[in-house]
Amino acid sequence: MTRLHLPAALLGLTMVAMAFPVQAEDAKTIAATICSGCHGEDGNSTIPMFPRIAGQDETYIIKQLKEFRGGQRKSDVMAPVVASLKSEDLAPLAAHFNGQKPKGQDARDAKLAEQGKGVYLDGNENSGLPACIGCHQPEAVGHGVYPRLAGQHPEYLLQQLKSFAANERTNDASRLMRVVAKRMTEDEMKAVTEYISGLGPK
């Protein structure tokens, strides 16, 4: 299992933030004091291991935060963060990050991204891999229970696919993403995440 190793400096920063619970916390303050160290103040993290959450669907964010807290989604990093939040903070936080403008990057490897486009649009008929576009929407903007993927760090996307395939991430309703990820080859995972990372505003 690939565990994330936090840079010590960042961890220290969060500890500090958590040690001084902000009074009358509004979402913006929490975002600036607690979340920004890892996800960036506007949710556009620049560090590959921390997912971008700007523009992410609100219900999806709330679901993830609740599941980090309940342990259905395991993360040694996010669990203590969410434990420090009050239940009524979750919805305003989700609305805050949903309201931020997402900012991605160009795909680094255009040829690989082109291969990944095929996976995204068509899946693989031989292995029964459904096309990602069916659930995650054109341009990977997401919708409802299907998260936005566009412009995400490719490293993060790849890591999530691998942990779905290995049954390490098991909070996907109806096991849908686990089934999808298990049908993917490593090459397909690398290609499609490269493609997705280059979608959306830069």
Binding site: P130, A131, G134, G144, Y146, V180
Partner: peptide
């Protein structure tokens, strides 16, 4: 229309399937 979403990855968004006949 919502319940059909998890089906679209194979059967396509317009439920046209694939001309290859796979779906």
């Amino acid at each position: 229309e919502i319940s059909f979403e998890p089906c679209q990855g194979c059967h396509r968004i317009d439920a046209s399937g694939r001309t290859s006949g796979s779906y």
